[in-house]
Each structure stands twice: as C-alpha cells, then as structure tokens.
Design a protein around this nucleic acid. Structure first.
Lengths: 187, 187
DNA sequence: CTCTAAACTAAGCAAATGCTTAGATTTAGA
DNA sequence: TCTAAATCTAAGCATTTGCTTAGTTTAGAG
C-alpha cells in the first residue's frame, strides 16, 4: 500500500540511548540525535513523538541492556558474594572504551532531580526499587540474616550502587575497587 | 572619579550559586541568573566575564559555605564518630525547605563528567580530595587503625558521601539515615 | 559646578534549541 | 501500470541561548 520504514526503531533507539547516557538529557540536542541515529528529524518525531519520547524509549532500552548482568545476579545463589560480583559487573558495563558513563538511571536522577518529569522520575524510582528488591532476594540466601537486617542492607547496597556513578566520573578504577571491597566488609 | 557598583559581588554570587545548585550548569540560563542576582546581564559580564566565570565563583562560594560543617569536623576529636556526625550535618546542609539539592560539587561532577571543562573538573577533584584527607585526619584519632586501613576507609567514606547526592534526590530521609548507619557499622 | 570615567539600561546579535511543514520519493495494491 | 498512502528530504518556524553594543545615568575629583 505504501512505503515501509527504512530503519529499525530498536536499532536507532540503541544509538539514541548511547548519546543520552554519555551527555545527559538536556545536553543531547535533536540535531545530535538525528546524526547519531542516522535518520531525519521528521522520522524521529514520526516514530517517537518528541525528544521526551525518544528519552523514555532509551531508558527502557537501557533496562533491557543491563538485564544481562541483573539476570546473572538472579541466577546466582551465593548471597552477598553474588551481589559483590554484580558491583564489579556493573563497573565493566558502565565503562565504554575508557569513557566512564556511570549509570543512565543515576545520571538522570542527578540531572532532573525532583523537578523532573513525573513519568520519567517514576520509571527511575521503579528501577531503583527493583534492584533493591533483587539485592534483598539474594541477601535472603545468607541464612543467618533476619528480615530487618536484610531490608537495611538491601537499601544500603542500593545507595552504594548509586554512589558508584558520580564516583566513577572522577576516580580511578583502583579507588572504585577499594570502595567496593570496603562496602562489603561489614555485611 | 566615576560611579560605584550598586551591588555586592559576594551577595549576587550567593544567589547565583543557589540557582546552579538547584538546576545545574546547563539548565541555568543567563536570563535566570539576571533575574535571581537582581542585576543586568551587562553587570554580570562586567564582574565575572561570562557564565563560566559566574559558575566558578559559585563553586568557590559553595566551598566557603560548606566550611561551617567541615570546620566543625576539623575541631571534632572523636574519630569516626565525628565523621558520622558530618554525614548528618551534610543532610541538613543540602536540604533547603524540603528541596533536596544534593551537593553542588557532586551535581557538577555528574553533569559535566570527564568531558567537562578541565579548570572546573580540577576544582571538583580537589574538593573531593580535601574531604577525603579530612576524613583520614579524623580516622587517625582512632588509635587502633593502621595507615593502609585509614586510607581505604577515607576513600570509602568519600565515595559514600558522593553517593548521598543521587540518593537524596529520590529517597526518603529515613532511608538516607539507615544508609548512614549501615555505612558506619564496621568502621 | 563641571567634566570624565565608570556603571547602568535595554535593545539586539548570531547561533542553537525543539518542532513543523511543504514537497519530492518510494512502494504496494488495484 | 497507475494511484494512493506512507516515507523521506530539507527548509523554515518561533523561542531561547550566551554575549555585545549603543546610549544614558551617576558619582566623585578638580
């Protein structure tokens, strides 16, 4: 009946996500997206409505991408040892040819703060809570821990995870590794 | 000989810092600064050169402002107990009529990343190191600790401090307090 | 008081922003 | 093969960005 799209929406969103991850929301312009995604502005607006829409899809794509390491943690059965491995896996995940991008979710929380769009902020808080619950699930494998301890430690590890993002932007890998080691010392 | 300035540079920088702290660098426009500082754009450029200059002065002013709580830590003689109090003091410091602004330094690290202006990034890294050294100084008061332990713990606490900023933007005060408690459990 | 040098106001600059629209191009079904 | 519908290109829209400049006001030395 008519012409078909000459691009794959998933593929172009992956590229968009890369830009947002590296530069943040405001510091990524539609012109930059156009160039990186390899399609015209018209096509961007036709597929995703507006810049906000491209960003929301990018967040979803990020979650899909990070699923590789969260699934690994889900399969792990070592309690706190598995979570510690998750921290190291995340360091690799967030490092892209020596460019420290941190976590897209943490970056966005930092940029938009509490004045950010409610739809986006809700998405981000949900992501944080999923990770926290996953930590709690794994901590339960350490049989000696009671429920209040598990919840406190899961919360602690969630925030420690968030902290890795600003830290990774100014510190050396050695310092980050020392940090992870000390973080898990008293659990 | 000529007209004198009708504003105090320190006073207007305090207001500028408030905006940068709340909104970040890119999300604060010169028009917004003009309004908040209460002076014309011409005066801004006459006093500080450009937006970048206003921001640098704002960072310096922030350091001066946070000195109140770092000085308190310097005077403290309780080792790790004093540092823990510093964490709580910082929570109060960064909370402004229920608006969670985090730490201006951490915010900027997050926004600009490693692509940020070298002069600014240097200023930020210096600030982090000063805090880390202050932590080390206080940790030395705990006589049972050896030097390598002190350095690792100081690094750990510095990053934990950084993490408080993204965390404060989505989590409750209770969660942040739990986090601080767990952070200091095994030090 | 006068005069000059600095500080003021406000209009305006080019460039970049998010988004739209007019028109050419392509493709699949009649 | 023709036609209609969806895609594409690229120019252009109003607004905002950081910064400048022309022209007025003001204060203090002589």
């Amino acid at each position: 009946m008519a012409r078909s799209k000459q691009y794959n929406e998933g593929e172009v969103i992956e590229k968009a996500m890369g830009l947002f991850w590296k530069n943040g929301y405001e510091n990524t312009s539609v012109r930059m997206l156009e160039k990186e995604m390899g399609i015209n502005q018209f096509s961007i607006y036709a597929s995703f409505g507006n810049k906000h829409g491209v960003f929301l899809e990018s967040i979803k794509y990020y979650k899909k991408k990070i699923k590789i390491i969260t699934d690994k943690l889900k399969r792990s059965n070592n309690g706190v040892v598995g979570i510690k491995q998750y921290f190291y896996d995340f360091l690799d995940f967030s490092m892209d040819d020596n460019c420290k991008k941190g976590c897209l979710v943490a970056n966005t929380v930092n940029e938009l703060g509490e004045n950010g769009d409610p739809v986006i902020m809700d998405e981000l808080l949900n992501f944080f809570n999923e990770i926290r619950e996953l930590f709690a699930y794994n901590l339960k494998q350490d049989i000696e821990k009671d429920e209040p301890t598990i919840q406190k430690q899961a919360n602690y590890l969630g925030i420690a995870m968030l902290g890795l993002t600003p830290a990774s932007k100014i510190l050396s890998k050695k310092q980050l590794e020392d940090y992870i080691e000390t973080t898990f010392l008293n659990l």
